[in-house]
């Protein structure tokens, strides 16, 4: 059960039970919807971008514990960041959960609490649960208003 406890750490369970920034930003100037057809997870990411800085970020949607916690943790990590920093964080996070050989903890931005999702790499079938919201963030930043999917 060790791998399971790595996956469902207390921090993950906490963000699943009480997700942060789970709301709609009425006057968001960027948003995008994401969908995972495999499990039916849906997520919408709202952004208030001002001069290249993410002033506010939120999400709505329903999904598994991993995807909900990933969304909650992501909004906390991104708030106040520049677009470029947000994109760098996505790259590093993706490389962490996909168990990329190139991953180097010391290179690039610090992941902080996002490291709690590292356990996902032991569960290849669940990696998409952790990355869907990030793909959706990317779409929102690029403001392609089309829904993104994990497929």
């Amino acid at each position: 059960m060790n791998e399971l406890q790595d996956l469902y750490q207390e921090l993950i369970l906490d963000h699943n039970r009480s997700p942060r920034n789970l709301r709609r930003i009425e006057d968001a100037n960027h948003k995008a919807a994401g969908y995972n057809p495999l499990c039916g997870d849906r997520v919408t990411v709202y952004l208030s971008l001002n001069d290249d800085i993410v002033e506010d970020i939120s999400f709505e949607g329903s999904g598994c514990a991993i995807s909900t916690a990933a969304a909650s943790l992501m909004t906390q990590a991104i708030k106040g960041k520049r677009v470029e920093e947000a994109e760098a964080l996505f790259e590093k996070f993706r490389s962490l959960v996909m168990d990329d050989a190139e991953y180097d903890e010391d290179k690039g931005p610090a992941l902080g609490k996002l490291l709690a999702l590292e356990g996902v790499k032991q569960f290849p079938a669940r990696v998409k649960c952790a990355t869907l919201v990030w793909h959706t963030l990317k779409a929102a930043l690029d403001s392609t208003d089309k829904p993104v999917t994990t497929e």
């Binding site: 791998e3 399971l4 499990c39 997870d41 999904g63 598994c64 514990a65 991993i66 079938a125 669940r126």
Partner: peptide, 13 residues
Amino acid sequence: DIHPHDVGTVLDQ
């Protein structure tokens, strides 16, 4: 309220 995906992962273990 446990998402089926989470149930599936624990069952698989």
